[in-house]
Write a protein that binds this DNA or RNA. Structure first.
Length: 775
DNA sequence: GTCCTAAATTTTTTT
DNA sequence: AATTTAGGAC
């Protein structure tokens, strides 16, 4: 086999040593290199040995990553199949694939090792599944399955679920796995807190159950890789040889398990390039260790560290405000972002009376921007927590502003979709008891807890799966005749579907299963108002399967990606999402609402992680600000509703940390603040500050000795709250009303301030009277 | 075994 | 406030 002239030739053995492919000198004026600045270029051309690129927000990180990949390929230092490129999210992986594709064309198809940690971990695990006690078609459990399984284990161990909830243990287990701890490695001190120190025991039993179910959870995708590499050095050596170059995106977000995985794999060629920004580390709650980035030079001796500090995204004002904010953090590697961009507008800080007003202000501002010719697609609203989205949605519906929510409730998590998927999972992998359990009486077949218990006992005594137990039980008389018949029918159906799966394509199979299982009928006969949309979702599920070659591929996608394929049509819409979801994106105009103590920074994070938690929140604020290219708005309110009751709030400490010279403070005149202050913001700087000194807030501070971390519920404000909520006269039964979200409807029942309304489109709902208007 | 009512829980962020 | 879960009645 001779080396082809085409540097992107795919027909190469991936195991060739790099020496067989001498690098081809690339002209210094190669177009893709010319487009880079000096630092970026240095990062692209530093090919040998470990490299750490500290890339500040907006400094062209993705461009460096993709160009570096293209450069490796163009200089023939490695074939596409010899490059491991790993990202944190599916979105990032997709984007990288697209951008490399744009740079080098179809060769990107050969990059079979570009993906998220989890998808690559799963890929490797499937290849060697038998070495860790799994079969290659193992199921990947999601959090829901995981909790159900933990619950079962704990039940069998007679652990009081009330006292020690399974979901709590799931979180602990997740943390352990993120740290790379197998049951033997969990320090005893860690396990003391849960179920009188029986945590490790539960962990072990849980892992045993996973093996019998032929399943792995998210953490296992990496942990089992580590075990595989440790127990089978030959397998590890193979991958070490294979991955000539390694690239890691968002390195600051890696957890210990991922770090160990990378370190093992990098020992071969040692050509590992990690790109990250310690100031954008926002996943500590999920096990990310900023330490990984801080100790890079220690772990990879001789590492070259390159800093990217020229920002191409934002105005000097936005950059200045963001830098000023983040400088309040202590543990940083330290970078100074600079820009050549022209002076822009200051960052606007706005206060509002309550969250409803906040949404109104943003809505008004958006309409103003629109009339200035800005597109809705240029605007994003980034919130700390998804519950904040509701009020914006309602406001936008009223104003007729188109919007899109990123990361809302996920398609594959809907009940009806999960049920359908469970059928497919059982067909594909018969030992998937969790899926079997989910649907063995869905639609209702007259099988219940008793039948399940018998199945489980039989399965355990025979050492088989529930399906196996069902099979043998249909031949004995342990179950009542009726249940036995029904069960036998179910087993028969699955046998039939499995046979069909061999010859039928997976889309037709899914249609057949939906039809014959009775799931479709079940929803067709359902009279509840959301039944039609559930049916529609099932259709959509079948449609989405068409994008995949095989059932296996589809199921893998569902468990690893969890998001439906994006809807077509790039309409002009405002984007509404969480700050976490916004990382890596940019928008000309960004709104950052909800900057109040307790919400942002989040009380819970501070309670759980103290100063470290606070610093992570601050980084989150930094991420939010640096998403903006031209203009950023920060908002806070004096009153926010949590769990139904109004709570007064004080502005986030982050607002005090913004450099005064680059911000503009603006009060909403109808917010109620203006009545406290000496005047509106428009005649001077100090009036705003005096709003902080308003009687309400002064009392708020006095009340709790001013603990800024804990918003105080102030009774003195009660009457003010009441005035913001004008009493609406009660409605009469039969009256026509209008609701922002549900549209027109007719009042059916009145319960104090709660109305039962039959909405024309969405059916009967219970709503609060102040949420509807007379039609 | 199914259906209804009462109570508990939720609001962080996600592979 | 709204949704999910548990328990009890039928």
């Amino acid at each position: 086999m001779s080396i082809s002239d085409d540097p992107f030739d795919l027909g190469r053995e991936p195991d060739e040593s790099p020496s067989e492919r001498p690098g081809v000198p690339v002209r210094a004026d190669a177009p893709y290199l010319r487009a880079l600045n000096d630092k970026q270029r240095e990062a692209v051309e530093a090919m040998d040995g470990p490299v750490l690129v500290l890339a500040g927000a907006g400094t062209g990180k993705t461009r460096v990553l993709t160009t570096r990949l293209a450069h490796i390929l163009a200089t023939r230092r490695a074939w596409p199949g010899q490059i491991l490129a790993v990202t944190f999210t599916n979105k990032a992986a997709r984007e990288m694939r697209e951008r490399i594709g744009a740079l080098i064309g179809g060769v990107v198809e050969g990059m079979q090792w570009l993906g998220t940690f989890h998808s690559l971990g799963a890929k490797i695990l499937r290849r060697h599944a038998e070495l860790v006690g799994l079969k290659s078609n193992f199921t990947i459990l999601d959090t829901d399955d995981q909790i159900r399984l933990i619950k079962q284990v704990m039940q069998a161990e007679n652990i009081d679920e009330k006292r020690w909830p399974a979901r709590v243990f799931a979180a602990i287990l997740d943390r352990w796995k993120n740290r790379g701890w197998s049951p033997e490695k969990v320090p005893a001190s860690e396990a003391e807190g849960f179920a009188r120190g029986r945590g490790i025991e539960i962990y072990k039993l849980y892992q045993q159950r996973l093996k019998t179910l032929n399943a792995a959870d998210f953490g296992d995708l990496l942990l089992e890789n580590l075990r595989l590499f440790q127990d089978h050095p030959d397998v590890l050596a193979d991958y070490q040889r294979r991955f000539v170059y390694m690239l890691v995106d968002e390195y600051q977000d890696t957890n210990v398990a991922q770090y160990l995985w990378l370190r093992l794999l990098a020992q071969g060629h040692k050509n590992i390039c990690c790109v990250g920004d310690d100031d954008q580390s926002i996943y500590g709650w999920r096990g990310a260790e900023v330490d990984n980035i801080l100790r890079f030079e220690k772990d990879f001796p001789g590492a070259k560290v390159i800093r990217l500090e020229q920002n191409y995204r934002s105005t000097p004002e936005i950059l200045g405000v963001a830098s000023g904010l983040i400088s309040a953090n202590a543990g940083r590697l330290g970078k100074t972002l600079w820009t050549e961009a022209d002076k822009g507008e200051p960052v606007t800080v706005m206060g509002a009376w309550d969250s409803e007003t906040e949404a109104r202000l943003v809505g008004d501002e958006i309409e103003a921007l629109q009339s200035k010719g800005r597109k809705l697609a240029e605007i994003a609203i980034l919130v700390r927590a998804s519950f904040q989205m509701r009020e914006f949605e309602e406001r936008f519906l009223t104003l007729g502003i188109n919007y899109r929510v990123i990361g809302g409730p996920r398609f594959y998590e809907r009940m009806e979709v999960r049920d359908a998927l469970a059928y497919l999972r059982v067909i594909y992998q018969e030992d998937d008891d969790l899926a079997f359990e989910r649907i063995f009486n869905k639609p209702k077949r007259g099988l219940g807890d008793k039948a399940l218990l018998t199945l489980q006992t039989t399965a355990r005594s025979q050492g088989t799966s529930l399906m196996g137990a069902a099979r043998s039980l249909s031949a004995t008389d342990e179950l009542p005749a009726k249940a036995r018949t029904v069960l036998a029918q179910l087993v028969q159906s699955f046998d039939r579907w499995r046979t069909a799966a061999a010859s039928l394509n997976h889309v037709d199979l899914a249609e057949m299963v939906l039809d014959e299982s009775g799931l479709t009928d079940m929803w067709q006969n359902d009279r509840s108002p959301d039944a039609p949309s559930r049916l529609e979702n099932l259709k959509e599920l079948v449609r989405s399967m068409e994008d995949f070659e095989t059932l296996a591929g589809f199921l893998e996608h569902v468990s690893l990606v969890m998001e439906a394929t994006e809807e077509a049509g790039d309409n002009d819409k405002v984007t509404l999402m969480t700050l976490h979801a916004a990382k890596g994106l940019e928008f000309p105009i960004v709104f950052l609402p909800g900057w109040e103590e307790g919400l942002f920074p989040s009380q819970r994070t501070m309670d759980e992680n103290g100063i470290a938690g606070l610093e992570e929140e601050r980084r989150l604020a930094y991420v939010g600000l640096t998403r903006a290219k031209e203009k950023a708005f920060i908002l806070f309110v004096a009153n926010r509703r949590t769990h139904g009751s109004w709570q007064s709030a004080i502005p986030s400490r982050f607002i005090d940390e913004l450099p005064e010279s680059m911000i503009e403070r603006r009060m909403d005149e109808h917010s109620g603040f203006s009545t406290f202050g000496t005047g509106s913001r428009f005649d001077g700087q100090e009036s705003f500050t005096s709003a902080y000194e308003s009687p309400g807030w002064r009392r708020a501070r006095a009340a709790g000795g001013f603990d800024p971390r804990r918003p105080v519920t102030i009774d003195e404000n009660a009457e003010l709250v009441a005035t913001s909520d004008p009493r609406v006269a009660s409605y009469a039964i039969g009256e026509r009303v209008f609701h922002d979200k549900f549209g027109y409807g007719r009042v059916r029942r009145v319960d104090g301030n709660k109305l039962t309304v039959e909405f024309d489109t969405t059916g009967e709902k219970r709503v609060i009277d102040s949420f509807v208007k007379r039609a």
